[in-house]
């Protein structure tokens, strides 16, 4: 791989290098070994949790990743919460009042929202809230508090302020998606027989809407939301670049530009593990939420 992807030594050593330096570093990194040996070393190290040394920073990749991870996970978490809460509320509203002016407005806006690239939304928000109104910071995480190895920005007021814009930017696309999904599922469920029966029993609208209709729309919503969580972490690359958020996405973009292969490889491994993990969790949540699946499993 390294044979094709350019010589990392070129990037690591500066202008003032000697041939001896080059040879020493090459030997130290094991780049003189045959290709198969290098791959074997990579695999056996990776299994032991050692992803190699970043070509650019000269530090172990795992250390860098662990340092950057809390920022990305916090951002993804907050934007997922925003996307789910606002998405479900708007979805239910547009389904119940399916012909109002507000509903049409929300639906049109959501179509524009889907067409807008994420980075444009980010720039727009920065312009409005950071440059013009000067309410919120436009970059960085604000102050962070260290809890063990985890650094959190959610406990300080500047950290909370800093996360608002990036979280909205990141969650907006998922929000419109969840909203449309909840809406179409609700509309379908509302015409089902058991809803008509609930109406016939004279139950209040609120009970019908939330206890009967919304509950039955949850399974497809959870499937899509779960899969979208993985995309949120992946799409954080764009948001983190716009807001200079010091997470793993920004790290990945830097590593692509400097051809820092160990960092790129580790990031992609991390994303894959996240995707598998999220799929597993979604499957477990299914069974917890839908009693029908539990009965099937027992029989």
């Amino acid at each position: 791989m390294f044979r094709f992807v350019g010589d990392p030594i070129e990037n690591m050593l500066g202008q003032e290098r000697t041939d001896a330096d080059i040879d020493r570093l090459r030997e130290q990194l094991g780049l003189n070994d045959p290709f198969i040996m290098q791959y074997w070393n990579f695999l056996s190290d990776a299994l032991r949790g050692d992803m190699g040394i970043s070509f650019r920073q000269g530090r172990p990749v795992v250390e860098i990743l662990v340092e950057r991870l809390p920022a990305t996970l916090e951002l993804a978490f907050v934007s997922a919460i925003i996307a789910i809460v606002v998405g479900v509320i708007l979805g239910v509203y547009t389904a119940i009042r399916s012909k109002g002016f507000v509903t049409n407005l929300i639906l049109t806006l959501s179509l524009i929202g889907v067409s807008l690239p994420t980075f444009l939304i980010g720039i727009l928000l920065i312009y409005l809230f950071a440059v013009e109104l000067n309410w919120l910071p436009s970059f960085g995480r604000g102050d962070v508090v260290q809890i063990g190895w985890w650094s959190t920005g959610l406990l300080t007021s500047s950290g909370l302020k800093a996360i608002i814009l990036p979280a909205i930017t990141l969650g907006l696309y998922q929000m419109t998606l969840i909203m449309r999904l909840v809406r179409s599922e609700m509309l379908e469920v509302m015409s089902a027989d058991y809803i008509r029966f609930a109406r016939a029993r004279g139950l209040p609208e609120r009970t019908i809407n939330f206890r009967h209709a919304l509950k039955n729309t949850l399974v497809p919503v959870i499937t899509i939301t779960g899969l979208q969580l993985g995309s949120i972490i992946a799409f954080a690359i764009i948001t983190e670049t716009v807001f200079q958020w010091p997470g793993v996405g920004l790290l990945f973009i830097d590593s692509v530009q400097f051809v820092d292969i160990p960092v790129m490889a580790s990031y992609l491994m991390f994303i894959s593990v996240m995707f598998v993990l999220i799929n597993l969790i979604v499957d477990i949540v299914y069974v917890l939420i839908d009693p029908r699946l539990r009965i099937q499993g027992a029989a």
């Binding site: 992807v5 992946a234 799409f235 690359i237 764009i238 990945f252 692509v256 051809v259 292969i261 790129m264």
Partner: peptide, 15 residues
């Protein structure tokens, strides 16, 4: 996500 695939291909090709 498609953007990740595109970025990966782009990164390799750039190398």
């Amino acid at each position: 996500p498609a953007i990740l695939i595109a970025m990966l291909v782009f990164g390799i090709a750039k190398g």
